[in-house]
Design a protein around this nucleic acid. Structure first.
Lengths: 164, 164
DNA sequence: TATTGTTATACTCTATAACTATA
DNA sequence: TATAGTTATAGAGTATAACAATA
């Protein structure tokens, strides 16, 4: 990604580098896919030293703002299946970043909490992610464009029932 | 569900329906993921009767606009790996929608073409996809918003070397 | 030596069904 | 009966390494 070759801005070369005329460029779904893959890959690299990936960060983020949330609701927020969420939490619990407790009210539930280590890690991860977000904002053109972008994304998502 | 705290049912339901406060709502990457998943799932359902999925449609679309393109360039346009592209084309070739020929110039290459059946299928698939695209445009708010959205997406993608 | 297409393979993601223990 | 969590498992999707044929 940091290949800083000298690149003359000739139309010929920039066209080739950009992947040519590409009929997929004007199809919303495919552009969404590319943008999503790129932002995730960027975040993966930024989280590299924390041994954290975007989905794991997302779980911790939800626990941070919703301590004691149960797994069904958390999985819905993350738009992943309850069943796949289990493995995710297993990993975080084994690393001592999150913990499942037992609810007194409903003994079926396993309310989720960040551990102290999880809270500490989130301090670092959160600032890394926030920095990335600012980078994205700048690439979009500024604060106003970011708002516009989020609003448009939300219009596409609206009416979604997350998962399941 | 009748236990726990006393809470007005209206607030309870709207909170649940809206997916709650969700700290992921303002993180670009995760909103991108949700929007991408949703548009793809919509397209999958629309293509249902054609037994076609978005990646397959994308390949056929590239062959339609770039007849004779080689696999390396096509894979780059699709932002997937050459190696995974092989399986994709295998499937399309077995269904008689695309074909690999042999190049006289460079006998390593296998220039790709739509078959007649492939062209016919693309007539249907293309109009389905175009209709979906118009639907997305309306949800975004109109033609102007679509342009804005694509422009912003492109700003995030810019500088990407696709894949590999 | 580099490139095109390919096979084999592994690893991650995601999806479905069925089970348990509670309610 | 329904719900929260879980297990097992299958299927996509995606990744790397290595090879043959050709340039």
């Amino acid at each position: 990604m940091t290949t800083s070759d000298e690149r003359p801005p000739s139309a010929e070369k920039s066209r080739k580098a950009a992947g040519e005329v590409n009929p997929l460029d004007r199809i919303v779904g495919f552009q969404l896919r590319r943008a999503q893959l790129k932002t995730f890959n960027e975040l993966i690299r930024l989280f590299d030293k924390l041994d954290l990936k975007p989905p794991q960060f997302a779980v911790l983020k939800v626990l941070e703002t919703h301590p004691g949330i149960n797994q069904t609701r958390a999985a819905k927020m993350l738009a992943i299946k309850r069943t796949n969420f289990v493995t995710l939490v297993d990993g975080l619990e084994q690393r001592g970043l999150a913990e499942r407790r037992v609810s007194a009210k409903d003994r079926r539930g396993r309310p989720l909490f960040l551990t102290e280590a999880g809270t500490k890690l989130m301090a670092k991860a959160g600032s890394i992610q926030a920095k990335h977000e600012r980078d994205l904002m700048h690439r979009l053109g500024g604060a106003e464009e970011l708002e516009t972008f989020l609003r448009l994304l939300h219009r596409l998502i609206a009416g979604t029932n997350a998962d399941e």
